[in-house]
Design a protein around this nucleic acid. Structure first.
Lengths: 341, 341
DNA sequence: TGTTAGCACTCCTTAACATTGAGTGCTAAC
DNA sequence: GTTAGCACTCAATGTTAAGGAGTGCTAACA
């Protein structure tokens, strides 16, 4: 048996209706809702076919049908009409300050949660490909140095370094010079052990303390800010009874708190490249706690290799059109953000 | 009618039992559980008295009794035996790094959630009383300056500043000098508008750009890091049926996400000064969403005016002994942390 | 051959009702 | 003052019946 136009139309009507009401939909409803002018009996025959083909499911013998994962998948891949939606302007969210990326991400994720009424999360952009722009070591007091590093995209990292013996001005100057000439322009990823060894060697006699300082500077660089994840609207899961039972809710809340969801979910190279948007429906999720959820992710790219991911988590009967549309718009705005400048 | 020793013993037994089981406790149970050697009938008479006095409540006529807020209050104030408990060492959590206070707070709050099985939150220490230790302005590229400020307690703040016209080396040097001599040693709180005006005046001719830069530096200082709140174990609320119904859970989760709970709850100067520990039982909470919760807070003090608050949120029938004990221990460890050095 | 009306059947949902049992309050005796 | 005894209350649980939405199947129809 195979899909024809009529079956497609009926399947679409079932899904549309179910997304709206959350109730299993019966043959009579479809008979009235579509422009096919078919009796409920005919619809019933078609529905039996669709069930046999695996697109819809009957919760129990005397109930209507609900879409299966395969049905949703068909809908998302071929029937959905995701329209770009008007969304708030990222520029406004940036508050004109480049270094407070963190604040913008929080604002975005909050905005998305409010707009979609689902739970949302966003990862900070990766920076391991970014190049060093500026390194500075300053003496704060007798036994504390402050290391500040700026990388491409104007992200700042810093660290207070304890030193056991005071370092004189001349050495500080030399050290700063050394760090800048050797490391500037390199991507964080490129810095390896042999480079560090070379650096230490060049730093010369004071190897004891200076070696430690260099180690700490390097560590500051490779600090994993990439994994930073912000979430919002977790309480939205209570709006959907199928997710709101205690066990499920507890699992989800916990997953959001641990912030490990996105890492678990995203499987690079699964066709999301073209649009940057990817949909995972119910059982398609690897994460066992999320088999009853659908997740839509978008990869944004601020340029210079700074990519991050936005995730929206809702029930299977998520409003895919709206969510995908919104994410597309947000993604576009984020992508344009740095590029235009 | 007034409390006598026997009533006290019975009340204590009722509360202890209820805290353990979560079920209303009947007269027969108390008759067997206590060493009073009284029949259930006698206990019933006493219970009727205790109810009249407002310490216990009968959910319905044929049920046992549960403690009222007043009962819990009596228990917490006079019957409880909070024993200091062995807790993880903060030193280990600090990972030997002074500037990563944030990481320590996250670790503490996570540890507490795991240890107590309640939802926990912690506020970062206030810093508005702290003194400036170090200010540095550096040129990152032609139109970006980097401002870095270190305050007492070695907390670091920074900001990237856009400048429209390039600032020459000499001016930078002068500006750094000026900022350090004028502001070092001052508490953040002390810096006011007239000081800023004076600063700008002293900075001289370049007033346009320089003025903006100074404004941004000042803003960096007063950035409200104080309000930073970390939470953990929110999913623990599902362990307590009285909190886990949808409406309640949603409200609580949302309150935790907004992180406004502690601010709402803490009422300074309500007797928590002696021990730094404060207990809010059920209806005693101002926040309307938390009328079914109990909250225990502890104020920690890292010295230099850096105070913060820890909060533990659970059901009314929280294990007060354990929670208060744990908080006392944690508080002591935190208080000692910086002081000893 | 596809479509449809009709009908028996399934099974979830809801309400009504009876049963059980924990726990109480009261009374009278100790 | 304490206690045994007893009638009473009421949430919880189980049972049964009625109602209804929706199906699958059959037979008639265009």
């Amino acid at each position: 048996m195979e899909m024809d136009e009529r079956k497609t139309k009926i399947l679409q009507a079932i899904i549309r209706n179910y997304l709206e009401t959350g109730e299993p939909v019966g043959s009579r409803t479809i008979s009235k809702d579509t422009d096919l002018n078919l009796s409920s009996a005919t619809i019933r025959n078609e529905m039996a076919d669709l069930e046999e083909m695996g697109y819809i499911i009957q919760p129990h013998t005397s109930a209507g049908r609900i879409p299966s994962d395969k049905g949703y998948r068909f809908y998302v891949d071929t029937l959905m009409e995701a329209k770009e939606r008007e969304v708030a302007d990222m520029k406004d969210m940036l508050l004109e300050r480049q270094d407070k990326l963190e604040d913008m991400l929080k604002t975005v994720v909050k905005y998305l949660a409010k707009d979609t009424q689902y739970a949302t999360m966003i990862t900070a952009p990766t920076t391991h490909l970014n190049k060093l722009k500026f390194i500075q070591l300053s003496r704060v007091d007798a036994n504390h140095l402050l290391a500040v590093v700026v990388i491409e995209g104007n992200m700042i990292r810093n660290r207070m370094i304890d030193v056991t013996e005071e370092i004189d001005d001349e050495t500080m100057l030399k050290l700063n010079m050394l760090l800048n000439t050797q490391l500037n322009g390199l991507a964080i990823e490129q810095i390896n052990l042999s480079m560090v060894a070379k650096l230490k060697q060049q730093a010369g006699i004071h190897s004891g303390v200076i070696g430690d300082v260099i180690d700490e500077v390097i560590e500051t660089l490779s600090e994993d800010k990439d994994l930073e994840v912000y979430t919002s609207g977790t309480n939205n899961i209570f709006k959907y009874p199928e997710l709101a039972d205690n066990e499920n809710a507890s699992r989800l809340i916990s997953a959001f708190e641990e912030k490990e969801i996105l890492g678990d979910i995203i499987q690079p190279g699964d066709g999301s490249e073209e649009t940057g948007i990817q949909v995972y429906i119910g059982g398609e999720n690897k994460n066992s706690g999320m088999q009853d959820c659908s997740v839509v992710t978008a990869t944004y790219d601020l340029g210079d290799g700074m990519k991050g991911t936005i995730g929206i988590v809702g029930p299977r009967r998520m409003d895919y059109d709206k969510v995908v549309g919104t994410l597309k718009s947000i993604k576009t705005k984020l992508d344009d953000l740095y590029r235009k400048e």
